[in-house]
Amino acid sequence: MTHTKLYTIIYVVLFAFATIQAAVEGFGLVDESYWFAFWLIIVLSVVKAVMVAAYYQHLRWEPRSVSYLAGGGVLVALALTAAAAYSIV
């Protein structure tokens, strides 16, 4: 599973996305349009996380069951957070 070039491209993309996230704040978008900036930044984080999991952790090349295992943990955490927050709306 030697994909040095692919790993490098992903590293560059991750680096760039992190920079964009900081730039969103640096250019004042968080102050001007908080919730637009919020979702933009969160989506970028999700994309970065998926890239790390898929390529650096090799989920892309593992049996699908391993992704379900990790996804199960994510689902559990999201269910707890979303339902708890909704309960006090």
Binding site: V66, L69, A70, G72, G73, V74, V76, A77, L78, L80, T81, A84, A85, I88
Partner: peptide
Amino acid sequence: WTFLASDIVLFGAFIGSYAFIRF
């Protein structure tokens, strides 16, 4: 991976707690 799935929930609950308190 099984351990990491548990660790995901641990961190998820921490981040969820932060989000809940802030919310």
